[in-house]
């Protein structure tokens, strides 16, 4: 349900900004790194900008990211075979940010932005996965593999700050290269490197 609400908010936000006189619509794909858990992943972002002044815009966007990490252990301690640890992350995020543009109207421009983020995250952290040693006949188990995990799921708040370099590729099209950091309170933060295109009107 939360995903649907976020999607609706995104559509309404985009529609509102689309109706403005000067603006742009961007799409970018990103490589995501979550330093706290050292997860890697990928995602995409859709954003829309409304220009208020040549050097100032308002941007709203939505992002979806996926990340994971596996630590192979494959060692035996006290007759217990430690298998591996796995980390999984998925997030839908919405942000709004003022954008300051340097070099507006030129072939290459630099944008700086920062603002609040609301995100719905689902994280599963394997705390352990191990195989128990053989047991006597009078002991029975559903499975010899014990799987211990921690699930961190819910809606969290944070902030985003980033910059992007935009290169004018055609009359109304720009190619963007960007980097941003998304800090999320009590959940998983990330650093993103992105490449994308935007359509300006």
């Amino acid at each position: 349900m939360k995903k649907q609400i976020i999607l609706l908010a995104l559509v309404f936000g985009c529609g509102t900004l689309w109706s403005q006189e000067i603006g742009s619509l961007g799409y970018s794909g990103s490589y995501v790194y979550m330093p706290q858990y050292r997860m890697h992943g990928a995602g995409y972002t859709i954003s829309i900008q409304h220009s208020m002044k040549p050097w100032l815009s308002l941007e709203a966007g939505g992002a979806y990211t996926l990340g994971s990490r596996t630590i192979k252990r494959d060692e035996t301690v006290n007759n217990v075979r430690l298998l591996d640890l796995n980390y999984h992350h998925a997030a839908y995020s919405l942000y709004a940010a003022p954008v300051i543009t340097a070099g507006s109207g030129r072939a290459v421009s630099l944008e700086l932005y920062g603002g609040p983020v609301i995100t719905w995250q689902s994280n599963v952290f394997d705390l352990n996965r191990y195989e128990l040693p053989d047991s006597p006949d009078y002991t029975v188990r559903m499975t010899d593999i014990v799987y211990v995990n921690r699930v961190l799921e819910g809606t969290f708040f944070g902030g985003i700050a980033g910059c992007r370099v935009s290169v004018q590729a055609a009359e109304k099209w720009q190619v963007n290269l960007g980097v941003n950091a998304m800090g999320i309170i009590k959940a998983v933060s990330s650093v993103n490197v992105s490449i994308g295109v935007s359509y300006c009107w």
Binding site: V80, L85, G114, V146, G183
Partner: peptide, 22 residues
């Protein structure tokens, strides 16, 4: 921007683990 990036990059790294119960 730089401050935010530094804050995130300096997040304490952890490999959550749990005891092995036998």
């Amino acid at each position: 921007l730089l401050l935010s990036a530094v804050l995130i990059a300096s997040c304490e790294r952890e490999d959550p683990t749990a005891p092995v119960a036998v």
